[in-house]
């Protein structure tokens, strides 16, 4: 349980460790009572710390390495999973997983970012930062879903699309752009769950849908707090200020109309109780699937258009007509 992932909860990590140690002890007179006492303290301290989290602290929760990742959700919530690989053009990208599974009584297509756990696996998954072939594999899966009439479930959890030399050479921008135009018109229902980091275009590249949901401590942003701080504050250390300014937490995003609902997490965040978090996500996904799965597809596409069409905040101010020519 890496306490460095979220330094503000070191007290909680400490309490959890002490409880775990006591549980290893042989049965004795004081043991039960001591565990009970620590559990009460843990639960109080959790509520205390989590009710006042700053936006930067929530970002750290969203990135916590013990949070469930896409394959954890698939394994716990779905059956008959078949993972598919490759974009049929260049390679397979382990930073995005894709395939088919049974969920809530029907077959569905699934795509999702996959962050690894442990150094070796994290490197293999490129820390959940896809390359173009990842987006193209996802697109292939979407088109299969459309062709075979399967609803699509997408799990979003990425720091962003990988900014590397090869990724640029192979058209990172084109790959994401193509997914956007295809998802806008995909003739099958799409559910999106932002489970951790919604990192900019890299997230949106598999993030358009009929229902877009977000977990309580997930984030969604146009740029990482570090990136924003480096550009606007000229100082990466100002990331907490940048996180505040970017309004990237679930309640912010809900208020802006970008997501339709927030899925509450267990006390202390999903990493404190992964099974509980996964169960809640499963319930909400199943309910949303029920709502959209059998709707008329043309109606659904119209609603999808209207949903994204409405996003944005601006003012209308009449102005005198006529073209302002050069320099005028």
């Amino acid at each position: 349980m890496a306490s460095t992932d979220a330094p503000f909860e070191s007290d909680l990590v400490d309490l959890r460790r002490r409880i775990a140690e006591l549980e290893e002890f042989p049965e004795g007179t004081g043991r039960r009572r001591e565990i009970e006492r620590l559990r009460v303290r843990l639960s109080k301290a959790t509520v205390e710390i989590y009710k006042g989290l700053s936006r930067w602290q929530k970002t750290q929760v969203a990135r916590h390495s013990e949070r469930p990742h896409t394959l954890d959700y698939i394994e716990a919530l779905m059956s008959d999973w078949v993972e598919i690989h490759g974009d049929r053009a260049f390679a397979d990208d382990p930073a995005i997983v894709a395939g088919f599974a049974r969920f809530a009584g029907r077959s569905v297509a699934v795509v999702g970012h996959q962050k690894g756990r442990g150094t070796k696996e994290r490197i293999r998954r490129n820390f959940g930062q896809p390359r173009p072939e990842g987006y193209r594999k996802a697109l292939r899966t979407m088109k299969l879903a459309e062709r075979f009439g399967l609803p699509l479930v997408s799990f979003v959890d990425t720091p962003g699309a990988y900014p590397g030399l090869g990724a640029e050479e192979r058209g990172q921008a084109e790959a994401i752009a193509s997914n956007l135009i295809e998802m806008a018109a995909l003739r099958t229902p799409i559910l999106v769950m932002v489970t951790g980091e919604g990192g900019s275009g890299g997230a949106l590249g598999i993030g358009m849908g009929d229902r877009v949901m977000m977990m309580e401590y997930a984030t969604y942003s146009v740029i990482s707090p570090e990136g924003c701080a480096a550009i606007l504050w000229k100082d990466q250390e100002k990331r907490a200020e940048a996180a505040e300014a970017l309004k990237l937490t679930a309640p912010d995003i809900l208020e802006l109309g970008v997501v339709d609902e927030i899925v509450p997490e267990p006390p202390g965040g999903a990493h404190a109780d992964p099974a509980g978090a996964i169960r809640r996500v499963g319930e909400r996904l199943a309910a949303a699937l029920e709502e959209v799965a059998d709707r008329d597809i043309d109606e659904l596409l119209e609603a999808r258009y209207t949903r994204f069409r409405a996003l944005g905040v601006l003012q209308a101010k009449p102005r005198k007509r006529g073209f302002r020519a050069l320099g005028g």
């Binding site: 135009i181 295809e182 806008a184 018109a185 900019s200 942003s221 550009i231 996003l311 944005g312």
Partner: peptide, 19 residues
Amino acid sequence: MQEGVLSLMQMAKISSALA
């Protein structure tokens, strides 16, 4: 950046119209 995630969503909005 100054319009946060709403800026990001313009990518989705324009792409929908282009579709």
